[in-house]
Amino acid sequence: MKVTRKEVERIAALGRLELSEEQKREMEAHLSGMTEHFKMLDAVDTSSVPPTAHILDKVNVLRPDKAEPSFERDALLANAPERDGECYIVPRAVE
């Protein structure tokens, strides 16, 4: 299945990605190849297989409602590209 240039541009926009012409061409080829690869699933007859929401058989993996200590804030914030000791800082994002 061919993934068109238009689809690549839309997916990039949704992911807030800026792609060069070169990268768009690459993505077209990559994504087309991937969808082509997965198309082999179409060959399997699944008419007798019930739909499932998950590949594993497990259900109800739950934990009791108990509060546990949170992380050290400094340790969490250490991963942020920008921070002020209390918060993560990002470019102003107003909807």
Binding site: A67, E68, S70, L76
Partner: peptide
């Protein structure tokens, strides 16, 4: 398991 609590110093109920 982080505490569900209103208020608190920013990013202190986080993991």
């Amino acid at each position: 398991g982080c505490r569900n609590e209103f208020g608190g110093e920013p990013n202190t109920h986080c993991c």
